[in-house]
Design a protein around this nucleic acid. Sequence first.
DNA 1: TAACAGGACGTGG
DNA 2: CCACGTCCTGTTA
Length: 322
Amino acid sequence: MSMGSPGCEHTAYSPLYISHPHSDARMAWLDEADDIKPPRSLLGLPELSWTGVYLPRNNILAMEENPWVLRMTESPAAPPSRTLEVSQAKPGQTQTPPYEMEGQVEEHCLEQVQTMVESEVLKDVDTACKLLNIAPDPLEWSCVHVQKWLLWTEHLYRLPQVSTLFQEMNGRDLCSMTEADFRQRTLQFGDMLYANLDIWRSAAAMKERCPPEDRKSAADDDCWSDLIRNYPSQPIHLWQFLRELLLKPHDDSRCIRWLNKEKGIFKIEDSALVARLWGIRKNRPAMNYDKLSRSIRQYYKKGIIRKPDVSRRLVYQFVKPV
DNA sequence: TAACAGGACGTGG
DNA sequence: CCACGTCCTGTTA
């Protein structure tokens, strides 16, 4: 059922492409190239485990023999529109009629929007970093980190499995690729991947330029910058991971959501996907909901998570809500 | 049939 | 040691 023709649903995630010329930053990185040691030993797992992982958008896949491996499906999502400039953060939101504006006002508005967009981008990047346990700066990524980022991007944009096409590449290799290189390697998904990598690089450059305390809504951002600051983080707990998924700024995946945030009640909408994401985070390709839920149940005794008073399928409750 | 509960045991940091 | 990960038996909606 619901194999759904592509395009009938929203292809919601907007890449929020920042059109910064970042050649300067790129040169700067190149200069520092010698000093950077990729944190290779962070994930002591054989990199083989990640071959061919595909995160399904909807829970459509058959996962008989090897749940991680899935064939290349034909284009599930429309390629993202490149080069959005800063025109629309979200469709249907704050549409301003530019033609009625004085030049100055317009410029001011643009600046505001850009700031907003930048902060959103940074949030997204921070979130992804935490969920994947990778550094914000692609140049620091090991091969494993690159694979994780690709899996995440596949997941976000509903791409078919492209991660296998980038094996043995670390972040530096990835960053040295041109847009044409990407296109050559992944056909129609090349510009999408390139654009997204660009976003990350821009975000890293932004972080470089203005440290977190300069940015607005420090209180709001606190937890995230905190999380990033802790990178490389200690082994994350499942309950933390779930909470972070729930607090994700753009939870476009909707694999998990609050039913009652105040009471800490949440529902796992896509158990297979949540389990996969957890598996990615912990480098456990064989993770599934059966095992994940067993771990959740261990929390009953510890008083971290429980079933709500009215027990419902896939619904849990944090004992101490955020 | 998938989710749920929880025992038993292994494992890796 | 601890927080799972794995596997399992049996129950429930």
